[in-house]
Structure formats: C-alpha cells, structure tokens
Design a binder for these strands. Sequence first.
DNA 1: ATCTGATCATAC
DNA 2: GTATGATCAGAT
Length: 230
Amino acid sequence: MRRRRLRRRRPRDEAELFGAAHAFAGWSLAELARALGVEVPPDVRRAKGFAGRLLERALRAERGSRAGPDFVFPAGGVELKTLPVDARGRPLESTFVCSASLAEIAPWPESKVRAKLARVLWIPIERGVELAESRVGSPLLWSPSAAEEQALAADYEAHAELIALGYTASISGHRGRFLQLRPKSKLGAARRPDPEGGLVLGPRRAFYLRASFTARIIARHYIVPPAGEP
DNA sequence: ATCTGATCATAC
DNA sequence: GTATGATCAGAT
C-alpha cells in the first residue's frame, strides 16, 4: 500500500476544493481511512454513508450533518455527493437529494431540490468487493445544464401537484423520469401535520435522483485512475 | 439486471 | 424527531 498524505487546509474556494478532491483520485477507502485515523467498518450493511462521511472529513467540509451545503464559499455553496459506481463507471444506486414534506411543497424555484443541486461536487466511488478496497474516482464539479434543470423541474412539479392535490396514496417511486419521490421510512411509521392542521399517517418521503440521471452526468467522465491491471 | 420500499449510522 | 450521509435487499 502506497503512503498517502492529507493536505491540512480547508479549501477556500471551488478551485481549491476541486484540487483537493482530485488529489484523492485513485485512493482506496482503506488508504483514506488510514490517513484520517479512522477504521473501515467490517460490516458494509452497517456502514451506509461511510464513504460520504470519509470524503467530507478528508475535504474538510464545514457543515457536516447540519442543514445547508457542505461547503460555503463567497461565490456560493457546494454540495458534496459521493456516487457508488461499478468498474465501468455506471452508478449503482440512486442519489438521495433531500427529504420532502407532504404537508407543504415549495414551487421549483424556491425548492430545496433546486438549491441542493445548484452546485454539486460529484465524487465517484468505484465499489470494490470489500468496502476498504473501494476506490475514489476523479471529481466532477457540476451544475445542471438548462436542459437538465428543465427535466428536473418538470418531474418536481409533477410530484408537487400530486402533493398539493392531496393524492398522497398515488405517490410512489415509480413516478418521475429522473427525480423520484420515495419513502425514507417505514409505511405508517410517522405522524406529521397536514395542511388542514390534522395528522397524516405515512412514511417520510425524500427526493432521489435516478441512476440513469447521474449516469448521464458522469458519462464519458474520467472515473478512476487505472489500478495497474492489464 | 434494475428498481422501489425499507433500512442503517451519526449529529443535533 | 429531523437532518445529515447513503445502501440494502426483496420484488419485478
């Protein structure tokens, strides 16, 4: 295993953040964890989010688990998203964006979804057989193109309309070409206020980007430096 | 092989 | 409980 060193300073702008992220391209999660002085969890099923938190620490994200973008620069916030990919660079999972309230849904221009996705640093993680063997790919600093934003907005508004009409029963992960609205808790697990002041029983929902969408974002992007195999 | 509902961990 | 970080695993 190669020796790996971390840089010390917190990035002060996008360029520094991108440079810092790029410096990790090719590292395994084991190497990154060792450099940070943390253990790689043995049980993958109990380690969801490990790669994301590891990269947050490695890149000195300010906000950690608090609300708002991971990095706040004078020029604007940047959201950090790790994206699990296979050896060919295809995303293996959908991407969580943010939770959604069925009691209240903002129009697209003021939506949390739009704010979250305005500026994203994507870091592909090429999944290894073992979690520790997974490798950090090269980063991509992204904002939605006009076409991408239009597509996301269309999906979002369709979800928002169902919510506004109270058709919560017909909300499912099947809807949305690129942006899904799916449960993030067990059915019937939560009780929350509805617009009339009563209580609505139902799962917590959240917006997710389909893998087909993130695949297009990182398509033809250089994913992970060669591992030295033929 | 892909997708949707369910699930896990941590911070506040 | 809500937010952050996501991935698991059974259904299709």
